[in-house]
Design a protein around this nucleic acid. Structure first.
Lengths: 199, 199
DNA sequence: GTCTATAAATCGATAGAC
DNA sequence: GTCTATCGATTTATAGAC
């Protein structure tokens, strides 16, 4: 195995371990020492792969975004009818909004670094990318159903994402809060959608 | 001035200073030393009034909640017609969601302490209180307009609050994001509202 | 009640050996 | 590239003087 490969492997293992610890214990509460030890390395290995702690944090955020996007696409894509898709989305939301600490981690990281040079630009970029992907997903779903959304897909995506963030944050410390309003929002989109005349 | 009064005054000044610093620089980035010095006291005065840092944090969160509730009530309550109220709410949202760091502070505090014993219970309690107050405000507004909301006021309040949190968080590091969807949500409530028959 | 002084612990980051 | 050792800075929190 080449130097480059072991380097990449070390990096992957560190990101994987940091991902697990950041989710379960929080970003600020997890030291780089803990991450390195849990991954079977020392702190030097961390700084050999990441210049700063928030560089590792951003790498983990990217993993989270990827997980969220793929699991959401898989859940919704498997269903066929409208009701099936809404049901699939409901199931996805109930287990992934709040229960999985994705939102709490991302928001903790974002708010804790809101005044850190360079970090909030990176987060803003990722926010736009994710919003775009979500908009594409929603537009694609609408097209498959043969309807047109009552508002631009980007606006719909912003609303859905913002609602998900708000619910995820609150569920992080008050798990009783239901996530039904996410589905309600989608239903309100569908109710106001207009059929596409595809001639 | 009695001992009790000076004690209360010191406490008030500390909360006031912490409020200012937490908002402008963030909770985690602000040490108790900075708070004490900026308020003209020493760290001993802080620990004479607050057992821990997060106790001071909770006191500041309470101030934020009070500010938000009163400014919102004042802004909306001044208007008379439906459009005036929506316009007033729009103006309030544009300057208070994101621009004022309320949401970022509250969310940073909440997510950073989501595993701290005793704190997330306190936050959950405050969340329910605020949701209740918001539900009452919306129900009152609907009653004044002579309509009934298309969903329980509590659910409407949850949606509005979650959307506000989500937008506020994103605006904290991406100020270009518009807050129009908050007003869109209110409009969708009004569109689906039914007139009250008050016989 | 508040201040001074300091404890006690931790963390991010660096330097040099291997 | 990684490890060991350590720096240096900071933080929360405490103890005793006034």
């Amino acid at each position: 195995m080449t130097r480059r490969e072991t380097h990449a492997q070390t990096r992957d293992r560190l990101v994987e371990t940091a991902h697990r610890l950041f989710l379960s214990e929080g970003y600020n509460a997890t030291s780089l020492d803990k991450v390195a030890a849990a991954a079977g390395y020392s702190k030097g290995a961390v700084y050999s792969n990441f210049a700063t702690k928030h560089e590792l944090g951003l790498a983990v955020i990217d993993v989270v975004h990827h997980e969220r996007a793929t699991s959401l696409t898989a859940a919704v894509g498997a269903a066929t009818t409208v009701e099936d898709r809404l049901a699939a989305f409901t199931g996805w939301a109930e287990t992934h909004i709040g229960d999985v600490g994705w939102t709490a981690l991302e928001v903790e990281f974002a708010t804790s670094h809101r005044h850190v040079e360079g970090v909030h630009e990176a987060l803003a970029l990722r926010r736009r990318e994710f919003t775009g992907a979500l908009a594409d997903l929603m537009a694609g779903q609408a097209a498959e159903l043969g309807v047109e959304l009552p508002l631009p897909p980007e606006d719909a995506a912003v609303q859905l994402l913002a609602l998900g963030i708000g619910l995820g944050v609150q569920r992080a410390f008050d798990p009783e809060l239901p996530v039904t309003s996410l589905v309600d929002l989608l239903r309100s989109f569908l109710e106001r959608a207009t059929p596409t005349d595809d001639r």
